[in-house]
Design a protein around this nucleic acid. Structure first.
Lengths: 331, 331
DNA sequence: AACACCTATGTTACACGTAACATTTTGTTG
DNA sequence: CAACAAAATGTTACGTGTAACATAGGTGTT
């Protein structure tokens, strides 16, 4: 393997010290124009690539943030990361990205890896963590933002929304549109799914209705949505609405309706969750709870970088709320 | 900020040297059981987190691979990364993940960042790179795998499939099912879309048929699929089949058929591309070209790690081919 | 001319895990 | 128990960008 060029190589070549070359990269205005020009040439010629290992060794900031998302194929998290990068790009921070597959054990491994790179802060998208994850983050002494949810035992700061309240509001809305036999469609029984179920159940009980749920432990998908609706229709006497734990299930269910000639929303009201683009391409458009994930990303990164820069946060918990898509699958 | 515990801290505490503690982590069997136990206690108590910065400074392997994917919300790449991690986990390599948003300029920045962490190898999912990207990778002297496609000017190694051949095969299959007036539906006119068009056209010419294309520069989506099929039917006298550049378009087109009472496949055969889950929720199920993305991930990582470990690769280019979903939208 | 001040560059020390080699301790065998 | 092998631990040096401080040379002011 070719040895990579170092600052020293460039400096030797020009008869100067590596300190000047280092300055050239980080604050060129402190280097004399003539020297700057010489260095520029030499850098171009040698193809120097910055090596951040030595900087990581000093106790200086790495200007890097670790981000752990649960899944790589979910628009929710891609929008979240977009939001984060809006801020990190502007502040010239880098992000180091990892994914956990919704598994706290995997998350632990990824947190360990990111910490080993001396990240200055961490954004986590889940609220369930192993004890070791919590201990490592504490020991690392860096600011942490948990986002998407409002955890019961926050590590540090939180930016998210109340999924139980959102679900409650959504189901109450369905009931208000004159649906009474609303079934909850759930997949991958994680914490957020449970929270939404709680909101759903509370809304049903408060309206004097009986909650009924069909669930699968599998990852949610369009085809799971079809299967779950089928199952709901097979299981329960009457079904005139479904509250889906996410838009994948909802779209799959609407597809099922199309195939089976079930009219939406007349025969069956459909409420999704997340407000993905795909819902708006359906006929009728899917009504869905919109989670402000880009805003969550922006706020999370903003908050984290401010704290890294020594500012005291105005608060430790930010609830960014929710809204609805302009859908027609409800009434 | 609390100073993180170092190996030295643990060693001091036990009256041994940090070298022994270092050994405890990397080859515990070389440490006496009694010492091992003592260290384990101290480590647990201090909450030590490994710091890889010093190791990155030596010329030793970082046991880390950089991966750049175009998008964080595409099942194709999530499956690819899954495949990669199958291997990296087994070989105790870490991956550093970045995404480029399909933009070579952004890819360049991400490549630079990953190289600054001294990754031992790089997996890229696109074949268009800036000159600087190529120069940096060359200078870094690490093995590189480009995956998904078979580029004309490979940087180093390639694991992918021939999209032109796949398209040719798919269209030939449509023709064999007695369709003659097949239209190509294209969106976001990137390289892969073009390659598929070439395959389509070749298949048509070879069968003595005339290729006909409708295209949009916009990002593909369900609604684009609907619009494009509408446009095709308006533009051409007879249409009895469509070859869609991806499943989004195909699903949109099939929905259009459902709305308009066009029978699939009797009136119109539909062929998709990628074999995503949603295609299987359609009625009839969408027939689609399946790209072996998990296998591509596995092969890419296997190859890269072998080369990192000093093995000479048996070949520099691996075409993993394609298959079809068990769909019913063809005949 | 003396002084303060600025700009450009240099000098020194440091961060900390690990490879390579050295030394000590323990175990084994004739 | 001497002699040697093996196991366990220690010693030394290294990599490379950067903070902090030092110095050289130049400019301007009184």
């Amino acid at each position: 393997m070719t040895n990579r060029a170092s600052l020293q190589d460039i400096a030797d070549q020009l008869g100067i010290t590596k300190m000047t070359v280092s300055r050239y990269f980080r604050s060129p205005e402190k280097v004399a124009p003539a020297t700057r020009e010489k260095i520029a040439q030499a850098v171009k010629h040698s193809g120097y690539i910055h090596n951040r290992a030595p900087a990581l060794m000093s106790r200086a900031l790495s200007r890097t943030i670790g981000v752990v998302i649960p899944s790589l194929s979910n628009q929710v998290f891609s929008a979240l990361v977009d939001g984060i990068e809006t801020i990190t790009n502007a502040e010239s921070f880098d992000i180091l990205l990892a994914h956990s597959g919704y598994d706290p054990k995997v998350e632990e491994r990824k947190i360990e890896m990111l910490l080993s790179y001396q990240v200055d802060g961490m954004i986590l998208c889940e609220t369930e963590h192993t004890d070791r994850s919590r201990a490592m983050l504490k020991q690392a002494g860096i600011p942490v933002v948990e986002c998407m949810e409002l955890p019961e035992a926050p590590i540090d700061m939180v930016v998210g929304l109340d999924h139980k309240a959102a679900a409650f509001n959504a189901v109450t809305r369905m009931i208000a549109s004159n649906k009474q036999h609303i079934v909850y469609l759930a997949a991958r029984l994680d914490r957020r799914t449970m929270l939404r179920q709680q909101g759903y159940e509370q809304a049903m009980w408060e309206a004097g209705l009986t909650p009924q749920t069909v669930a699968t432990p599998f990852q949610s998908s369009f085809s799971q949505g079809m299967k779950l609706l089928q199952q709901a229709l097979d299981t329960f006497d009457r079904v005139d609405g479904i509250f889906c734990t996410n838009d994948d299930l909802a779209v799959g269910a609407m597809q099922f309706c199309k195939n089976e000639g079930i009219r939406v929303p007349d025969d069956l009201a459909v409420m999704g969750y997340n407000g993905l683009d795909i819902g708006l391409t359906m006929q009728p458009k899917l009504t869905s709870v919109v989670t402000p994930r880009q805003a969550i990303g922006i706020k999370s990164a903003r908050l984290l970088i401010d704290v890294i820069n020594g500012k005291a946060p105005s608060d430790k918990l930010f609830d960014l709320g929710f809204s609805y898509t302009a859908g027609e699958s409800l009434s």
